[in-house]
Nucleic acid binder design. Structure first.
Length: 442
RNA sequence: CGGGGCAUGGCGCAGUCUGGUAGCGCACCUGGUUUGGGACCAGGGGGUCGCAAGUUCGAAUCUUGCUGCCCCGACCA
């Protein structure tokens, strides 16, 4: 993409309403614009990040055996009356009436709808286990939206729902999502720690929140420091017993403030390993048994011909929240520092002297080569001064900058700058593409 | 929902107390000089001052009502 043909309205000053760093940087980098309290438009640069995050989520869900579908944003009130939640949900649910005076709602979550769909489509024990997911916009009419996209009212979420014959099988489905989450967040450059969370009213329910530590986190969390150094499992066989893979996370203390047990914390975690910090919740996994399949009669016939009520769990990842969360975890005083996996472009190509024929030619050639090599590249081909281009590139935080000026071109050299480290190296103009391709596979 | 604050070109702000021709910086357009970390000079374009009533010869400014947005708290992916 050429800057001269792109739409990326960057701001030198952040709008006054933005307080936290991720919100300020997203506005300044031209990723989003606010259209109402907790409601945002995603501009091209922001959308590219959102899509990258969705792609990673999707890949890991698919890998874990979950099956994608897409449910609507609008749902019927009657469906929610079946589960008893229409009245229970309260003001957080945005209720809408259509022209025929039918009561509708903008879905805050999809347990009811997926249960209805699965109930109607699955009839035999052969139809389970299944885990279905979609990535769709949700609306929760929060009392107070804040922190930009981290607590919007409208937000993009991946939500998965598992259906199993027995509680034991349901736990296996739960485990698959749990491991997929470890991998998903790690691929985004995040250290997300599963922490015990409020289990809700039904005893025996199981819930973990996946939390990343950040100064601007909304809740207080407590954990063992060793958890910060764990690496997500690779080459997972999702059909195998996953409990051993999960064990390193589950053996050490980690809890949100809701369920924090100060005595246990002090007892189980050595003083110098105790972490108490602020955390951002980026995902939650929840096993709730027959909470919805009971009232909604989500049943299949077992081998013996008898009806069996299915056991379920739901598993959410805040996709749009992750955009903000990643920035909270990865930025410096100059701007965003994108992990390569989610960056809107991998490489920023900076033409220091647009209009100089040798420099233009070198840039055009590099632009084409990078593109051919499959590296997304943002080429600043505008007539801006060098300083302004550097500032913008640092602000939007692409992992690599290739800086091309007349002096270097004459000597056959360009500069390769790593945004994260700030390190700049001179490199042959013929080598730079290969070097960048090599970093991709790393 | 309780408490606090803000609303003036795209963004950041001044002007409001004390009513009198709507201003500054950035961004944008034109020309020129520049050109390796947000250049300079000159000339331009763009705002019914959140909305509605009221007071007044006259309202961004005073009064009343409304709306929107932000921050702190309780609640949430």
């Amino acid at each position: 993409m050429r800057v001269s043909k792109f739409f990326m309205p960057v701001l030198r000053d952040a709008p006054r309403e933005a307080e936290i760093v991720s919100h300020r940087l997203m506005l300044r980098a031209g990723m989003i614009r606010q259209s109402g309290a907790g409601i945002y438009s995603w501009l091209p640069t922001g959308l590219r990040v959102l899509d990258n995050i969705s792609r990673i989520v999707r890949e890991e869900q698919d890998r874990a055996g979950a099956i994608e579908l897409l449910m609507p944003t609008l749902q019927s009130a009657d469906l929610w009356r079946e589960s008893g939640r229409y009245d229970a949900y309260g003001a957080e649910m945005l209720r809408i009436t259509d022209r025929h005076k039918r009561e509708m709602l903008y879905g805050p979550t999809n347990e009811e709808l997926i249960t209805q769909i699965f109930r109607d489509g699955a009839h035999s024990y052969r139809d389970v286990p299944r885990t279905l997911y979609h990535i769709q916009w949700k609306f929760r009419d929060e009392i107070r939206p804040r922190f930009g996209v981290m607590r919007g009212r409208e937000f993009l979420m991946k939500d998965a729902y598992s259906f199993d014959l027995t509680p034991e099988d349901a736990k296996k489905s739960f485990n698959r999502q749990f491991v997929a989450y470890l991998r998903t967040f790690e691929r985004m450059g995040l250290t997300a720690i599963p922490m015990q969370a409020e289990t809700g009213p039904i005893g025996g329910d199981l819930s973990y929140e996946f939390i990343i530590l950040a100064k601007t986190g909304e809740s207080e969390v407590f954990c063992h420091r060793d958890l910060l150094d764990l690496k997500a499992p690779e080459n997972v066989d999702y059909d195998s017993d996953l409990e051993p893979l999960m064990a390193p996370w589950l053996e050490k203390y980690a809890a949100t403030e809701d369920v924090h047990d100060a005595a246990r914390f002090a007892d189980e975690v050595p003083q110098d390993r105790q972490v108490s910090a602020r955390g951002i919740e980026v995902g939650q996994v929840f096993l709730f048994g027959t909470k919805y399949s009971d009232p909604m009669k989500c049943q299949v016939q077992g081998r013996d011909g008898k009806l069996v009520t299915l056991h379920s769990g739901s598993y959410g990842i805040g996709v749009s929240r992750l955009v903000g969360a990643i920035i909270e975890a990865s930025h410096d005083e100059r701007g965003i520092v994108w992990p390569a996996s989610v960056a809107p472009f991998k490489v920023g190509l900076v033409n220091l002297k647009a209009g100089d024929s040798a420099t233009d030619k070198a840039c055009e050639s590099l632009y084409e080569q990078l593109d051919n090599a499959g590296l997304s590249v943002l080429y600043d081909d505008t007539g801006e001064r060098a300083g302004a281009k550097f500032k913008t590139m640092d602000l939007i935080g692409l992992p690599w900058q290739v800086i091309v000026g007349p002096r270097g071109v004459k000597a056959g050299l360009v500069e390769l700058k790593n945004r994260a480290s700030g390190e700049t190296t001179e490199i042959g103009i013929d080598e730079v593409v290969n070097r960048l391709v090599a970093t991709q596979t790393g």
